[in-house]
Structures are given as structure tokens and as C-alpha cells.
Design a binder for these strands. Structure first.
Lengths: 198, 198
DNA sequence: TAGAAACTGACAGCTACTGTCAAAACATGG
DNA sequence: CCATGTTTTGACAGTAGCTGTCAGTTTCTA
């Protein structure tokens, strides 16, 4: 993560444009809602043409949907010591990444979350990304055992973990503060215990 | 399930129209792909106006997305004897419903699955429905214990189960035959064992 | 510094989707 | 059977997301 080597001028400009579009989009979404903000408005605010907007983001949804953290978390999980359980490896991995975010990054993250929790359309696509994350997680866990993420066993574990995180996230309209690891840890603990009984 | 009491003529006609739209839509999607089939074409084929199409299905996606089976499965789970484990209750519930489908219903179901497995847009919305299913499943499992589905414990279990089913479904481009309970059962078995070790 | 490659803006076009309104199909009481 | 009110429908117009083209500009490279 963190690409701080903007080789050419072209790259730097692109990154700047990209950021500008995202910022303005986020702001406008908050101010007037997602649906009633047009791409034209975003483009205008970011001082680009509509065509340019769509060159940077294939759809209006994508402007708010990109998540840069997944790969970092995966890396953190892979580097967890082998004696740690899979569940703990996930928790630790997430914590190690989130603990290092600046307040500003946190803020942006929370704004994003809030918006797409409230727009079904966006929620659906975010879910899709989480399912894709199952692949990565399965792989990460498998690596810790020197196995392959293709194996059913790891897909199952990864699926269950992601499923749990998904299931406890939105209990209605509550604000979801991702810092609330307590809840996640608690839930995963329950999973570890309960499922083996009866 | 199975509404065979079409009181008035109006109701009967509505059901017929609804069915016609879905049938033609499915066929056209198969013939020319989802994206390149317009609502206009569907409406024309079903001999209704575009307005009418949108009165029956809020969006083009909905025409293929509705799933009538979830509530039935939930009912089947609730009626499982208490000594059966949660995992088995889910497996049995699904089996009891799917085993009673006619070949024709199976066929329609498989066609639907195939289409929206291949269209990311549809996949995303289908996922959303599965997440909604977590609520229902949590409730069903809780009922078996005379508890409430609101309790974290049941949300966790339901989330994990749904997560597993999601995770093992699409191993690439394979045709997904929902009759393949073997895989599902195997996966859920692994969940029951593995997660408690280490 | 010249030419190649990438980026951009303006424009035109398609399609999903919404709203309105009058006509048609159905239901119901006399 | 008919007049009534209710529901459903079609035609039409309009908005907005998204795609494609093409010429002009900016950046890179030799």
C-alpha cells in the first residue's frame, strides 16, 4: 500500500484528478444524497468533463466503492505467527492495519461506510467485493499452514469468517464504527466455541 | 407456496402477465445475453407496454432475481426435531424443499442460476438477498431453541453457515448444480470440526 | 526538438427508469 | 343487465447513467 513514488508528471496528475473526483463525489453524496447527485455535478465540481469521469471510474458506483485495505490486511494475516489460531490471525491482521490509520483516513473510511450502508445499490456491490475477499482470505490462511487456498477446508473457514463479519455488521440503521473490534472478536469467539457443541 | 386459489379474474390475469414477462425475459436473456436484451424487447415479446413491465418488476434485474424458496426452507428448518444440530437442520431443510421440486421447476431454477452467475451485476444483488437470508436463518435456528434470533449467538451461526454456502458455490466457471448437496454437507461438516481445533 | 502515445473535452446516441394522464378492463350494488 | 367506482393499462415525454467517436492538447521518449 501507499504509493509514494509518483514517477512521471503524468502519473501525479492522474492521481490528483482521481482524488479530486472522489473527494467531491463523497462531499456531494453527503450533501444531497447518492441518487440525486448526478455525474455531471461531480464532474463539474472536480473540474473535469463527464467523459473523463467515466475514464477514471467505470460507473458512478465505483467512485465510492473502491477499498484499498483488503490486500494490506491479507498481508498482515500471512505474517501472523503459526501458533495463532486462524480466527485470531484474522482479528490481529485487521487490528494491525486499522490501528495504523490516521484520523483522516478513518474519517474518510467512516464516511464511505455510512453512505453505502444506506444505499442498497451500493451495499450489494460492496458485498460482492467481500465475497471476492473470501478467495484472498482462504489463501492467506492456507499460506500459514503451507497449504493451498484451493483446498475446501480453507474456503470453508474463510467463508465462515467473512459470513460472520457480514452478519453482525448492520443491525438495522446503527452507525457502524469499524473500530468496534469488540463485537467482531466476540462474534468470532462464539463461532469457535458454539459450532462444535451439541 | 403454491397459490391455487385465483379468486378473481383480475388476479388470474395479473399472475399470467407476470409469468409471461418472466418467461420471455429468461428466454431472451439466454438467447442474446442479459445486457443486450432491452426492456422494450421483453415487453414486446410478452405483449405489454414498457410501463406495464416496470409495474410488475421495479427494475430489469428483478425479473430474474426473485427467489420463492427461501421462506419455504426456513419453515422446513423450524420444523426439524430439536435433537438435530443446527448444521444438520439447515441441510435437512434445504433437502426437504429441493427434493420436492418438479423437474420443470429445477430447470427454471438452473437457468436462473446460470444467468446471474455470469452477470456480475445480478450476482451482486443475489448476494444481497443471501445476506438478508441471514436474518431469517438466525430466527429459524433460534426458534428451535426457544430463543430470539436477535441474539448475537444465532446471528453468528447463521452468518457462518451462509458464508460457507456462498464461499464454496462458485469455484470459477463451473456449472453449479444445486442438487450437489454432497459438497455443501461436506463443507458444513468441515466447519463443525475444524474451527474448534488448534 | 520532433514524433509517438496518452489524455482530454465536446458531442451524439442508447437505454433504464419515472411521472402523468386518459382509456380500457374488471368488480360491485341495484 | 346496467351504472358505478376501482384497478390496470398504454402512450408519451423527460431525466440520467453510460458508451462511442473524433479532433485537439499534454506528456513522454529518442
Amino acid at each position: 500500500m501507499t504509493s509514494s513514488l509518483p514517477a512521471g508528471l503524468r502519473e501525479r496528475k492522474k492521481a490528483k484528478t482521481r482524488l479530486a473526483i472522489r473527494e467531491h463525489a463523497l462531499r456531494l453524496f453527503e450533501e444531497q444524497g447518492y441518487a440525486s447527485t448526478t455525474v455531471e455535478q461531480i464532474a463539474e465540481a472536480a473540474e473535469v468533463s463527464q467523459s473523463t469521469f467515466f475514464r477514471y471510474f467505470p460507473t458512478k458506483e465505483d467512485v465510492i466503492l473502491i477499498d484499498d485495505y483488503d490486500p494490506v490486511i491479507v498481508a498482515a494475516i500471512k505474517s501472523q505467527p503459526p501458533q495463532v489460531s486462524h480466527v485470531q490471525a484474522l482479528v490481529n491482521g485487521m487490528r494491525s492495519v486499522f490501528d495504523n490509520l490516521t484520523e483522516q483516513e478513518w474519517d474518510a473510511e467512516r464516511r464511505r461506510q455510512r453512505i453505502y450502508q444506506s444505499v442498497p445499490e451500493l451495499r450489494a456491490r460492496a458485498l460482492n467485493q467481500m465475497v471476492l475477499a473470501v478467495d484472498m482470505l482462504a489463501d492467506a490462511l492456507a499460506v500459514r499452514d503451507d497449504r493451498s487456498g484451493e483446498e475446501l477446508e480453507y474456503r470453508v473457514i474463510a467463508g465462515a469468517l467473512v459470513g460472520v463479519v457480514l452478519a453482525i455488521a448492520p443491525p438495522g440503521g446503527d452507525e457502524y464504527d469499524p473500530r468496534d473490534f469488540g463485537r467482531i472478536e466476540q462474534a468470532l469467539g462464539i463461532l469457535e466455541e458454539k459450532l462444535s457443541r451439541r
